[in-house]
């Protein structure tokens, strides 16, 4: 399973790199779709269907909105000249990447293999969730009983995002009337 996930991750990295460098913005949006749907397959392989359902629906809606936006505005990528400033940016990015990768290599020596984490905190949740919450689906039991404050926060964030989009977009529209 690690090999399959590695192949899918490779495809996702190629898609992300192509999305950055594509001259046509529509093909960049489609390449971003590779990343999203590859993540869906990874979630399914890692046995997380709850996340996979949410990810596939949100990815589709986002792709529809992004394609509509690209078709409505422009399909051309901005042409930026290559000068000393971009060279400094590239070198800085590469140095930070190398530093983080070095510490990452040291950090994973102390981790358990993939999917074999020690469940110190989660052990009581996994074993006692059905008796404590009455919900067979462990994810829903954790979301709405053990971690209900997190769920309230997520819902409030979504509510605020909708109000913000409504306020900002309608103000621009009202000004022209």
């Amino acid at each position: 399973m690690e090999l399959t996930i590695s192949i899918i991750l490779g495809f996702m990295i190629i898609g992300a790199i192509y999305a950055i460098h594509a001259k046509d913005l529509l093909s960049a949006v489609i390449a971003m779709g590779i990343v999203g749907y590859g993540l869906v397959i990874c979630f399914l392989l890692l046995k997380a269907p709850d996340l996979a359902i949410v990810q596939i629906v949100i990815e589709t809606i986002t792709l529809v909105i992004m394609v509509a936006v690209v078709l409505d505005s422009t399909r051309k990528e901005l042409e930026l000249p290559f000068d000393r400033k971009s060279l400094v940016n590239m070198v800085t990015g590469f140095v930070i990447f190398a530093g983080l990768f070095y510490f990452f290599l040291h950090a994973i020596e102390h981790l358990d293999p993939l999917g074999m984490h020690s469940l110190r905190m989660a052990e009581p949740y996994v074993n006692g969730a059905v008796e404590l919450t009455g919900s067979i689906n462990l994810v829903t039991g954790v979301l709405f009983d053990f971690r209900a404050y997190d769920t309230l926060g997520e819902a409030v964030i979504l509510y605020t995002a909708a109000l913000g989009a409504l306020t900002l977009l309608r103000m621009k529209g009202k000004k022209t009337v």
């Binding site: 269907p49 359902i53 949410v54 629906v57 067979i136 689906n137 994810v139």
Partner: peptide
């Protein structure tokens, strides 16, 4: 509360 999914999905 029975099958994968829930309010968000």
């Amino acid at each position: 509360h029975l099958t994968p999914g829930g309010g968000f999905a």
